[in-house]
Design a protein around this nucleic acid. Sequence first.
DNA 1: AAGTTTATTGACTCGTCAATCAACAAAAAG
DNA 2: CTTTTTGTTGATTGACGAGTCAATAAACTT
Lengths: 191, 191
Amino acid sequence: MEPIRKAALVKATIVEIGRAGSLDVTVSQIAKRAGMSSALAHHYFGAKEDMFLAAMRHILSLYGAEVRGALAAAGEGPEARLHAIVRASFSPGNFRREAVGAWLNFYVLAQTVPEARRLLAVYQRRLRSNLLACLRPLVAGRAETVAASLGALIDGVYLREALKEGQPDSAAAVAAVVDFVAAELGKTQTK
Amino acid sequence: MEPIRKAALVKATIVEIGRAGSLDVTVSQIAKRAGMSSALAHHYFGAKEDMFLAAMRHILSLYGAEVRGALAAAGEGPEARLHAIVRASFSPGNFRREAVGAWLNFYVLAQTVPEARRLLAVYQRRLRSNLLACLRPLVAGRAETVAASLGALIDGVYLREALKEGQPDSAAAVAAVVDFVAAELGKTQTK
DNA sequence: AAGTTTATTGACTCGTCAATCAACAAAAAG
DNA sequence: CTTTTTGTTGATTGACGAGTCAATAAACTT
């Protein structure tokens, strides 16, 4: 039972954060959505914060899996692999209300909860390392710098696309980042 | 009295959000820090959310003033003006705990509170227009695209610098963005 | 001076919520 | 079949907090 209940709670936590748009969700709401009493939620997770952290781990692992899958499906060319990472980062699923809510609130959580900050750092390192592998063959010496900027650009574009009025547009987000890469590769042509 | 009290409450709101790292601050805390009773805070602002929005307006107007000042001090060259905007965006003051807390939580607020979303949109449009003015002489046809990416990059770099473990480094943030601009201008050389 | 508006607060209402606990059920172990 | 472990909940506790209100004081108006 334990793993089933925990998984249900994690999913419900993410949904509720998405609905509320904040971490201001009660354990009862989460438990109810997961089909159990609040007491049971407390039984499996000690405290509410533990639920948040588990939810964060889940979101990050989903994203990680998405990127891994995209890379596996992509061919061998560095450009193609780079493109795959970017597309995975901006997949429509990542712009669903729950996902946006989760990410934004995890940023907030990372300010004060060390474990949340650590998890975020892990995500950023993984993204960076994936980007580096693609970039080294393309820009050699400047790979480190470009990877750092590219990572930040992905976060920034995501933020803007997620918060703009109107529906987010995955394709536009991808295009913006691809354009940056093109510039870094020295081709001014947007293609 | 009214404007004095309101100003004190706005300042106190920002400080308390920074301390808590979230919008989970009580009106009493804010009022106490502002040197008055919670009833008085409710008297001047109707509800807590109004205090948050006033605080957001204040943060945004501070940032706007900073950019305006930097532009006034900068010369006439588009590159210099661009650099001024970037430096103002990453001034050490913007990395103080209160400022970071305010920005991150305003992003969260923008998900659900239309007025917050609107304010954020205003900030983004202003930044975009400032960037465009500098970019048009430099990259002509691609100015719109570059301005959009540059705006997102600034947000993304800020986010990462603010949340990384260790103290944020304004200079590094500026350097990352400047490097991007250099690439967009077609100069591969990092300087 | 009497009246009116503004400033200010302590006390209160009404609600919420995290966390605990005792109790019950049901499965596993012996 | 009885004991222990695991699953489960309703009820409760204890605390906190947003917003209201009546009352007091102080400052202007006429």
